[in-house]
Design a protein around this nucleic acid. Structure first.
Length: 256
DNA sequence: ATGGTAGCCTTGCTA
């Protein structure tokens, strides 16, 4: 079972690249972030034309997450529990066979020290609580998405320049570590130890051609899912296309 | 030299 995650930075602007990647990579479940459209505006027909189903939550212009899958999504959870007043479209979770998959778009949180940063930390606390609830069920699950967290200084091209960035702040990293210490596995790091491997390259300043990137898109696996992991990698090809997203897909393969 | 780019249905905000 192949599970992937990709922040597409507008599903409508990225539709040709999305369709091409689905055809080529053939994921069983693809988690999308920053779809940037209402659910009613998601390009369903084109995606369904490739044999995929879509479950999504959206809002106008910002955020938006989706689960694109070959088999139907069951027991769908829309939104991250714990804050009924939070109307940002950043979390959706569902069962695909016996594996539960979440597509999450964690708040960026910049600038550090503002209400946006506080929202990021509070959102991470809610994700921690949700993860504990899922672990209690003792099922295989994958938390996939744009975490907006650079786990260590080996995951950013210029650690000094990003020291005070919300993606690198100690408060952000501590919460990401706490999540991992619940017993989750960073799928990429289970297969690749080399530093300075990235999933995001800013549009500005020639970051892509210089390989100035960040590793901020992650697949975190529950123990039962980690037992089955067969492979994981970052697919850099989509980032090199014209009119690319600033993120590129990451995927993992779980043995049957 | 505090720049640069992309996407939003915007005239600034978010990233």
């Amino acid at each position: 079972m192949k599970i992937a995650s990709w922040n597409v930075n507008s599903v409508k602007a990225r539709l040709p690249h999305l369709l091409a990647w689905l055809e080529e990579a053939q994921p069983d479940v693809l988690c999308l972030q920053e779809t940037k459209c209402l659910e009613s505006d998601f390009p369903l027909l084109e995606v369904k034309g490739l044999g995929y189903r879509v479950e999504c939550i959206g809002q106008r212009a910002y955020n938006g997450v989706a689960l694109v899958s070959k088999q139907p999504a069951l027991d769908i959870q829309r939104g991250l529990p714990g804050a009924p007043e939070d109307d940002q479209a950043r979390y959706i979770e569902a069962d695909f066979g016996e594996v539960r998959v979440a597509s999450l778009y964690l708040p960026n949180g910049n600038p550090s020290g503002t209400d946006k940063f506080a929202y990021k930390l509070a959102w991470m606390d809610r994700l921690y609580d949700r993860t504990r609830e899922l672990l209690r069920r003792e099922i295989p699950f994958v938390l996939a998405g744009d975490y907006n967290i650079v786990p260590t200084d080996e995951d950013v091209y210029d650690p000094a320049a990003f020291r005070d960035d919300a993606l690198c702040r100690p408060e952000s990293r501590a919460r990401f570590r706490a999540l991992n210490w619940l017993g989750l596995t960073d799928a990429y790091r289970a297969f690749h130890r080399e530093p300075h491997k990235y999933t995001f390259w800013d549009y500005q300043s020639g970051c892509w051609p210089r390989d100035w990137g960040l590793r901020i898109d992650h697949l975190l696996l529950s123990p039962h899912a980690a037992d089955r992991i067969a492979d994981c990698d970052i697919d850099k090809k989509p980032r090199g296309k014209d009119r690319a997203s600033d993120h590129t897909p990451i995927w993992c393969e779980l043995a049957a």
